[in-house]
């Protein structure tokens, strides 16, 4: 008998009574202003949140964010100033001194995470970029992770997707929080 069959057989003979699947219909956390709650949570996670004021051009926004256009890596048409990640022949050669600009599908108020299904050919820049600038529609904010996985924009067909909450961090040396372990050293959320 193969390992697979053997394992499955042993599991089927466990003698455990079938248990029902819970309905998960308990009341979930709600926020009067999901936007405000999101901003609070995002800042707690180490991200900064700025607003994209009406009338501001992408170029002007970049000046406000202190990002040099030549440092940009983005596939978004509005930010086509630097390199396009899908035109990079070998992303191993990108280095790490760049700012990736991406657009999140939605944000989660309870923890400040944003949902980023893979939008580039390779997901590497999402993690290797020194800085992330993430655009977020301020009306697309859900309360909890349970609401997130039910959201229509939490699409079913993706290669890789990631909930990102703030910059990469660690506290492995004496529990001292350090920003910038392996991934982004800084995350800026731009509310549209």
């Amino acid at each position: 008998m193969s390992t697979r069959e053997d394992i499955l057989n042993r599991l089927r003979n466990s003698g455990m009574e079938p248990q029902p699947k819970p309905t998960l219909d308990f009341e979930r956390l709600k926020f009067e202003s999901p936007e405000e709650a999101f901003c609070r949570s995002a800042e707690l996670s180490g991200a900064s949140v700025v607003e994209w004021h009406e009338g501001l051009t992408p170029e002007q926004l970049l000046v406000e964010l202190d990002v040099e256009p030549c440092e940009i890596l983005s596939a978004l048409p509005d930010f086509n100033f630097g390199r396009n990640p899908d035109c990079v022949a070998d992303y191993h050669e990108l280095g790490d001194r760049y700012t990736a600009i991406l657009e999140a599908r939605f944000g989660v108020a309870e923890n400040g995470a944003v949902w980023l299904p893979q939008q580039m050919r390779h997901k590497a820049p999402l993690f290797a970029a020194e800085r992330l600038v993430i655009l977020l529609d301020r009306t697309a904010i859900v309360a909890t992770m349970q609401d997130a996985v039910e959201h229509p924009l939490f699409e079913r067909d993706f290669i890789h997707g990631c909930f990102v909450a703030g910059p990469s961090k660690t506290a492995d040396i004496e529990q001292a929080l350090v920003i910038g372990a392996h991934g982004a050293m800084g995350v800026t959320i731009v509310l549209k």
């Binding site: 923890n111 290669i159 997707g161 909930f163 909450a165 991934g183």
Partner: peptide, 12 residues
């Protein structure tokens, strides 16, 4: 923490 920094979902 409210959530880990990265919750990566691998699908394909």
């Amino acid at each position: 923490q409210a959530v880990t920094t990265y919750t990566s979902i691998y699908r394909r």
